[in-house]
């Protein structure tokens, strides 16, 4: 019995959607791990948030200053700002101007 084009197409799509995505995510996360390890070895600290997530964190802290987790959030924010300002190489895609525009909370 020969396979129809439709079955073959579905097979290819399924392999791409499952094994393709799983392989991509595995390779990406292992590469990120290697990069973080190298950065930690070189500069001991790594920035913890990408620009968009850090901006969201700041906005949330400013909107919820009395939240029970606000102090912890502030600490996480400041930690990331400190690392960005004190290290040359950044894990996330930070531009120099973005880093310079940051200030502690």
């Amino acid at each position: 019995m020969a396979l129809t084009i439709e079955v073959i197409a579905m097979l290819v799509f399924t392999l791409a959607a499952f094994w393709g995505v799983a392989t991509w995510s595995l390779v990406k996360t292992l590469r990120q791990e290697d990069r973080k390890a190298a950065m930690l070895e070189a500069q001991e600290r790594v920035d913890t948030y990408p620009p968009k997530a850090l901006a969201e964190l700041r906005a949330w802290i400013e909107a919820n200053p009395n939240d029970s987790l606000a102090d912890e959030a502030r600490q996480s924010y400041n930690e990331c700002v400190d690392v960005l300002e004190s290290t040359d190489e950044h894990f996330y895609d930070w531009s120099e101007s973005e880093v310079q525009s940051l200030d502690r909370l």
């Binding site: 913890t48 912890e72 959030a73 996480s76």
Partner: peptide
């Protein structure tokens, strides 16, 4: 904000 996106590989 505090755990999922911290050190995350994707946003």
């Amino acid at each position: 904000l505090l755990a999922v996106n911290k050190n995350a590989g994707i946003y």
